[in-house]
């Protein structure tokens, strides 16, 4: 009996692997992907990186202009994250079961959030390129929309988890909606809210670099220029400063999390 179950499990396991290998093979043929070549090219890539992709004295001169572009990117991300958080909090309140005003508004805000969240940021950037053209506003809105969608969802869950019982008690005292929000919901969920906002700030600083390549702004744009003009030394300096910044931001936000939680 037990042996039978085991055998069945084994057969399922085999089938899974056969299917996986089949699918992989099929797509390798379609995309003309050559696994051997891709593996043999790894050492070559490493050698290339080591010989070309490092900052030299020439590129150091460009550091101030790189840093100023980096600052632009960071500020853009922070601006997009904070404004999106404010809207997300409002829609989070409407969408949460605990603090909904009515069902229609609840469904509406959950749907909007879901749409905004599920369109990838690069797609947003390309859509917005048509309306705003290549400038910082495009990047701002692309970050804003995705952040808004993601945070609305996160806030709905946070609010439902953290404050159902205290909301019930405040409602029973005769408190008004906004009294309940400010005296009950926000105090209960503020650590998680801040934590999510910090998380999105980190994420957005990374994605805004990418979006910058498309929209021709910020540090992504200068990277693209250096790279295309084969100034690999300067391009590497851009990458290094981005990595250091992301690390610094992560350390700072972890510190803030530790203090508030």
């Amino acid at each position: 009996m037990e042996l039978d179950v085991m055998k069945k499990k084994n057969r399922k396991f085999m089938l899974f692997w056969i299917a996986l290998i089949g699918i992989t093979g099929f797509f390798m043929v379609i995309t003309k992907y050559d696994p051997i070549k891709s593996f043999t090219s790894i050492p070559k890539a490493i050698v290339w990186t080591l010989t070309n992709f490092y900052p030299n004295s020439n590129s150091i001169e460009k550091l101030p202009s790189i840093l100023s572009k980096l600052k632009e990117t960071i500020f853009l991300s922070i601006a997009a994250t904070t404004t999106a958080s404010a809207f997300a909090l409002l829609f989070g309140l409407f969408g949460s079961k605990t603090t909904k005003i009515n069902n229609l508004l609840g469904v509406l805000s959950r749907t909007i959030a879901s749409i905004f969240r599920n369109i990838p940021i690069v797609a947003w950037a390309m859509i917005l390129l048509f309306s705003f053209g290549q400038n910082a506003l495009t990047g701002y809105f692309a970050l804003f929309f995705v952040t808004f969608g993601f945070l609305t969802r996160a806030f709905i869950e946070t609010i439902d988890e953290a404050s159902y019982e205290s909301v019930e008690a405040l409602r029973a005292t005769g408190a008004t909606y906004f009294q309940i929000v400010f005296q009950g919901v926000i105090p209960s969920s503020i650590p998680q809210i801040i934590s999510w906002v910090l998380f999105m700030t980190e994420t957005n600083i990374r994605s805004s670099t990418l979006v910058g390549i498309l929209t021709g702004t910020g540090v992504g744009f200068v990277f693209n220029i250096y790279y295309k003009s084969m100034d690999y030394n300067s391009a590497s300096l851009v990458v290094i400063s981005i990595i250091l910044t992301v690390f610094a931001i992560e350390i700072t936000s972890n510190y803030i999390r530790r203090v508030i939680l």
Partner: peptide, 18 residues
């Protein structure tokens, strides 16, 4: 009416972080 009716709960229903 609600101000005139106090309510006490099994799980206390306080705002724990305040």
């Amino acid at each position: 009416v609600r101000t005139k009716i106090g309510m006490i709960f099994q799980h206390y229903n306080l705002v724990d972080r305040l």
